[in-house]
Design a protein around this nucleic acid. Structure first.
Lengths: 228, 228
DNA sequence: GCATCTTTATAAAATCTTTATAGAAGCGTA
DNA sequence: TACGCTTCTATAAAGATTTTATAAAGATGC
């Protein structure tokens, strides 16, 4: 029997510990992240059945984290926050949160709201599109088109492209890419990357010999560019 | 686009008036009931898109009303109550309420919670007919036809196809499909899926060897495409 | 008892990993 | 500048592994 997996994104260790104990005692599997960056990565790598998100993270604005998650994550997100101003609540809900609970919360109520949210897990609507130079990526539908024509990508190819798309303009190092896609322990298999980059270019570049989207940064990594 | 219809069940005329004004100003259609009996009758006669339910009704216990509504009513129910004891909240949520707001509430927050609840509501299956490439799915009548000929599907086959039809174009992961159809705890039984997908293809695909509607996304899940 | 769901077995298909080879770029030296 | 050397990159293709399709047998429930 599989337990529902809940990802906690909160920087306070005590809160995480309290949540961990409470949730595990109620038969949920718990994963944790202490920063926005960690949390987004964790959610992307292995999507949990639900996210509990603290808005007061040290490295990034909570509402921005929420919007980023909602670009592709469709399962319930419950906000836990010390803020209880109406504006914060309204913004969070409109950014796609399913519920908002002010700290300190009552654990019984939290558990009930978790049950409620998991019960009615939403089938989200049309996804946010990343469009550029004839290339179109729908992170929710897992759908990629070039000049309007669907491109068939394998699971790994898609993961790689999605990771690029979410980090448009930034150089991603070999090390980082390998760790994100293949996991800890593959950081030196640069050849994997070369093979898959070549594969991707063949499928999404107008001219694979003169790449416009996935450009090589020799000795460092690759950079994804949305043209123009 | 028709306005969403919200049914208010509350015995206090001032609250009803306040809600009526607030909701209508925000482009909802409002209907009202002052007693439990009236409310249940109204919901049954013309099911609204959402119910706002006060727990302190004169003629019947609020939790009982909630349970009665949930016997057949599947759209969102938000509780408005002067009670804010944890026990009341937990009971209401476990009785099927989507949200619980203590009076006095802030109207901005109420509106945000209404938007949130409506957003995640079962995609208006009402009168939805999906037609494509000789395939025809009537989600209301639970009726499937191929080239005009009725297709006989088992309960599970139909649930699966309906889930696909409601998420046309999107990749649905094994995990998600198994959770939605078989429930929490079956997420690793990918073989179930394979068996039922094969079964469905045999029944709805023009050429089951070259599926056009239910396409495999190896390593990830399946995608439903309405042809052309 | 019959329809349906669950499980098992096996073949086929798709994908990933690994190997091989060639090209491009940087760098020091004559 | 030209040359050889080294390092990094691109790509195709063979081999290995994983994932999928399907039939069919066993179990379950009304």
């Amino acid at each position: 029997m599989n337990k529902a997996v809940i990802l906690i994104i909160d920087d306070e260790p005590q809160i995480r510990k309290l949540l961990e104990i409470t949730l595990e005692r109620n038969d949920y599997a718990v994963r944790q992240a202490a920063t926005a960056r960690e949390g987004i990565t964790a959610a992307a790598a292995h999507p949990p059945d639900m996210v509990l998100l603290d808005l007061g993270l040290p490295d990034q604005d909570g509402q921005a984290v929420l919007r980023t998650l909602r670009e592709w994550y469709t399962d319930p997100i419950i906000i836990l926050s010390v803020q209880s101003a109406e504006e914060d609540i309204v913004t969070a809900l409109d950014n796609g949160a399913n519920d908002y609970l002010a700290k300190p919360f009552r654990t019984g109520e939290l558990l009930a709201r978790i049950r409620s949210a998991l019960r009615g897990a939403a089938t989200g609507d049309a996804g946010k599109l990343i469009v550029s130079g004839g290339l179109q990526i729908d992170l929710v539908a897992r759908d990629v088109k070039r000049e309007g024509v669907p491109v068939k990508l394998t699971a790994t190819e898609y993961s790689l492209l999605a990771l690029f798309a979410r980090n448009e303009g930034k150089v991603l190092t070999h090390h980082y890419l390998l760790k994100e896609i293949w996991g800890q322990g593959y950081q030196n298999q640069s050849q994997y990357l070369r093979v898959f980059i070549a594969q991707l270019r063949k499928k999404i570049e107008p001219d694979p010999n003169r790449p416009e989207h996935i450009v090589t940064e020799a000795g460092v990594g690759y950079r994804f560019r949305t043209k123009e």
